[in-house]
Write a protein that binds this DNA or RNA. Structure first.
Lengths: 158, 158
DNA sequence: TTATTATTGCAAATTTGTCGCAATTTATGC
DNA sequence: GCATAAATTGCGACAAATTTGCAATAATAA
């Protein structure tokens, strides 16, 4: 198995991008973890990489296809992309916020191609996100309800 | 066909939520239009509903499943959800930004259920977004490239 | 209507994301 | 290696987006 940092090095080099310390640090903060919010990444790099640089680096990584952002309810999170993980999607629990990755089937892939063709559309990427309740929450929680008394000037569920 | 506002009334009532003027206005700003940015919605309600209230109302609508947000490149947009439209997804052109809606097939739906079951997950909703090039752009545009000299402290996307 | 409870508007505070520019690091060619 | 050119960072200042507290106002229930 290839070292993740090696892979980053290769990826940067192949795009004529510099191999720098901050980029390694940001990458490491992402590697092998659950998708994270920008805030979490910035915190993880605190003292080592400036906030503005984290943004610039994440932005670069996105353009290079090294990281991908996914929408988790109201916020977004970032994770290393398929080249560094395997292509997958997520089941997000609306109750506890847990993110469960899953692989996509060949049939599903085929469907997308079929849909795109019918619209004369050339697919370059896709996201599939499913929300619901994980086993733990499904059993202990009654179906989510919005109660009258509930404060509602807060964001919808993670 | 049911009046959209009637439908909103029913939806709010069924959740024990108040039927208020600001909510009707925000709803109307959304009804029958393309997905919009928060900014566009706030502008559409200018003078009628305060910005903070628009945020609170959209947030409520999301929790009630009245609106859904979808990621368009770096930004997000909001649209009325399936109950007020029909259930569908989008093909987004990375070149011109056009959004092409499409319906999902029964098979696709079946796949999702199958995947969820294998993880003991109860589905409550899902999003499927596809990016690529629409017919017009696919024919006239060469595939995007990342160049060395390109400034990289700007956002990716389109 | 009146009393009670939820929702709004407003102003102010946070949070997030950007920008310019000098200081520092990488990459390159001896 | 070492000097030089080019790219990347850190910093401080901004700007935009989103949230909050609270008093005023509108909606609901009796």
């Amino acid at each position: 198995m290839v070292e993740p940092l090696e892979q980053l090095h290769t990826a940067l080099k192949s795009h004529n991008q510099s191999w720098t310390r901050p980029r390694q640090i940001v990458f490491s903060a992402l590697a092998g973890r659950e998708p994270q919010t920008m805030h979490e990444i910035v915190s993880a790099c605190a003292g080592q990489v400036d906030r503005a640089s984290v943004y610039r680096i994440i932005s670069l990584f996105e353009r290079l296809g090294i990281v991908e952002r996914l929408q988790i309810g109201w916020k977004y999170k970032l994770e290393l992309s398929d080249a560094f993980h395997s292509h997958h999607h997520h089941l997000t629990c609306l109750s506890c916020g847990r993110v469960i990755p899953f692989d996509e089937s060949a049939e599903l892939e085929g469907h997308l191609q079929h849909i795109a063709r019918s619209k004369n559309f050339v697919i370059q990427g896709h996201q599939l996100e499913i929300q619901g309740l994980c086993q733990a929450c499904a059993t202990k929680t009654a179906p989510a309800q919005v109660h009258k008394k509930t404060r509602n000037d807060m964001r919808p569920g993670r």
